[in-house]
Each structure stands twice: as C-alpha cells, then as structure tokens.
C-alpha cells in the first residue's frame, strides 16, 4: 500500500464531497465540472486498485486477509461512479448530496484499506 496514494485519494474524495455538498447547499444539480472531479477521484481509486493488485501479485500480504482487501479495493473504485450515475437520474440538489455522501464513503473506505493492509 502506498500511503501517499491513500492519503491523496482520501483528500480528493473529501474535496469532492465538500464541492458537491456546496452545490447541494446552493440548490444545484451536479454539472460537467463535478463529473470531471468525480473522474479524477475515480482515477485515483483505479490506480490504487492496480497498485494493490500488483503488490498482492508480488507476494505481499495484507494483515487482515487478501479477500477483504480486494473487496475494499473494488468497493472504493466503484463507490464514486455509482453515486455519479445516481446523480444523473436525480437532477436536483439531492443528486449532488448523494455524490457528496459517496465522497465521504470513499474516504472512510480508504481509512479501512489502510487498516486492513496493516499500515
């Protein structure tokens, strides 16, 4: 596990949460720029998924088990895109708030990933 990458992903996820939370506060739906932001966060999660799998392939072992580690990697990758799709169906402030919640969930998943790896 690259600690720097985990921290970067968490911070990006929280920034996305704040940004979309602000949009919800201003009664706005998610816009193109928000989706670009979601893309960036998702890309970070994807890089982490790849790095995690590579490290497993090298024979490194997560402290709390490989299955759980991989499940959390996949979950953290799918989290923000799933919320993004839901905000496409709900073009109100509530769609924005859903993406904000997705960002918070991702940040929590990152902390859990760190624990599972045993950092």
């Amino acid at each position: 596990m690259l600690v720097a990458l985990t921290v970067a992903t968490s911070v990006a996820a929280l920034a996305l949460a704040a940004w979309c939370g602000f949009a919800a506060y201003r009664d706005q739906p998610t816009k193109d720029w928000h989706f670009i932001g979601m893309g960036v966060v998702t890309l970070l999660a994807l890089v982490q998924l790849i790095v995690g799998v590579v490290q497993l392939a090298r024979g490194e072992d997560p402290e709390q088990g490989t299955t759980i580690f991989v499940a959390y990697l996949i979950g953290s990758f799918a989290c923000v895109p799933a919320a993004g799709f839901m905000s496409l169906g709900e073009r109100t402030r509530w769609g924005s708030l859903t993406v904000a919640a997705g960002g918070v969930v991702l940040a929590v998943l990152e902390v859990r990933l760190y624990d599972i790896w045993g950092g």
């Binding site: 839901m86 905000s87 709900e90 109100t92 509530w94 769609g95 859903t98 919640a101 969930v105």
Partner: peptide, 14 residues
Amino acid sequence: ITGPGILLVWLYGV
C-alpha cells in the same frame, strides 16, 4: 426515489 429518496437509496445500497 425522487429528491431525498435518492440519497436514502444510496446510503441503503452502501
């Protein structure tokens, strides 16, 4: 699932 309902569905899904 309109309005606040979408947020509930998301959290329940998680």
